[in-house]
Design a protein around this nucleic acid. Structure first.
Lengths: 240, 240
DNA sequence: CGGCGGCTTGAAGGACGTCAAGATTAGTGG
DNA sequence: CCACTAATCTTGACGTCCTTCAAGCCGCCG
């Protein structure tokens, strides 16, 4: 399946996109929809390890992931990488760059990635004419503020790991994938960095979860055996 | 000085507000400015400990702090309070509530607080007609995403504390207050909760900073003696 | 005066990180 | 298809930073 140039099934991807509800014909005035579709530029494929943008580059566009997984990360003064987030199909990247007008992080493909690119100046101009788009942008921005919760909170390694698995599964489920069996597209090191843990700790906790019958692990393939148990472990993180 | 009902010097407060640049006459069309001023409702005073809004309440308004300090916090399942942020005069509160349409946290006055209240529906309607306001909202929202960095990063207690002091001083300076001498309006416990440390750790680190000649401490009064030294300590946090 | 909450200080314990060594896998070229 | 190397992952032993527990101090207010 190649979502690249052919674009026969644009619609198929738009149904999973964060902008789907405004992009797709849903009682919306046809001409305005056309304007939004004109504004979208399909880019990709990117291969694992490719940079979509780099920290410090001038901000121009936000992106929606059409296929694949993207990680965003910063390198601090001491050269340590800190993962800020993972972005699945249908999710947006780049919203935090509006204010400083420069990307505050690197965006790196974890596998084969296709994107929709939205010129932000064009989008915000369009938003003044289409309140639905403005609302959607406000919602997306606001939601991103809340998403920092997982990292920001004062939680231990078990809570973080359990919440990570549950949230990852929920996000996959929201896009129509299986919520109990999935493949992690990122390395243990990336997960560790994201959760602010050592890679060894991630390894040990996954092992403990496995020994406790909460999950099945085969390399990067995960099966959630006791979703409720995990949800209980991560409840402090999950309830905001 | 009472910024309450009299309102003789609305202008005085607006100069320090996050919306100042759009609210204040600055080449902007007079009628539109009037509309924004009509939309603003001055509320307060609140006393230390008063709730401005509570977690779970229906989202209707965002607020700008006119005077005083506000903390935002959540109580997790185990009853532990987690401080999400401190809000100084000129800063906004409530932006993270747009998406779930409910306030995700409590907002509590730390001292005597006066606010400007903006009805969000009215504001976003106005924003479709005034691109400057839309831009400003996008910027404010985007900036808030980045502000999670202090908490989110994998930093030790020294780095966190140093960065906290520097950022606090910078924010005061941006509003025209002294950048080297100030009074902390929050308790050690609040600082600790905000930095995800134990209160005892905050105490010990302040003592160490004092012994090292970096700061002077007299209860909640702080004087920064070696700003560069502190900035150096917190450099990983401060550079995003 | 006495009680209370916030703050400080010391001592002990724990959760997680660091270090080091293997194990397993992936990538590469023959 | 199979070596060979590099990268990722796992596991154990040990160290450390921070928390927890406990006690004492100080300012505030009834």
């Amino acid at each position: 399946m190649d979502p690249g140039e052919g674009d026969g099934d644009t619609l198929r991807f738009c149904t999973t996109c964060a902008f789907g509800e405004v992009c797709l014909p849903g009682g919306y005035d046809k001409r305005a929809l056309q304007e939004l579709h004109c504004l979208v530029e399909h880019v990709g494929p990117f291969r694992a390890g490719d940079f979509l943008f780099r920290s410090g580059e001038r901000f121009e566009s936000i992106y929606a992931v059409r296929a694949g997984t993207v990680k965003t990360a910063t390198i601090d003064e001491e050269g340590r990488e800190q993962i800020l987030g993972f972005h699945l199909p249908g999710e947006m990247i780049g919203l935090s760059a509006i204010h400083p007008a420069r990307y505050p992080c690197d965006a790196i493909a974890l596998d084969t990635v296709y994107l929709c690119r939205f010129s932000f100046p064009a989008l915000s101009t369009l938003a003044t004419r289409m309140p639905g788009i403005q609302q959607q942008l406000f919602r997306l921005l606001s939601a991103d503020i809340g998403k920092a919760a997982l990292l920001a909170g004062d939680y231990n390694a078990n809570e973080r790991m359990a919440a990570f698995l549950i949230l990852f599964a929920d996000r996959l489920a929201a896009r129509g994938f299986s919520a109990t069996r999935f493949r992690l597209s990122m390395s243990r090191g990336d997960i560790a960095s994201y959760l602010r843990l050592a890679p060894e700790t991630v390894s040990r906790i996954l092992r403990r979860f496995r020994d406790d019958g909460l999950i099945r692990v085969d390399e990067r393939d995960i099966e959630l055996l006791q979703v409720d148990g995990l949800r209980q472990l991560g409840r402090c993180v999950l309830n905001h």
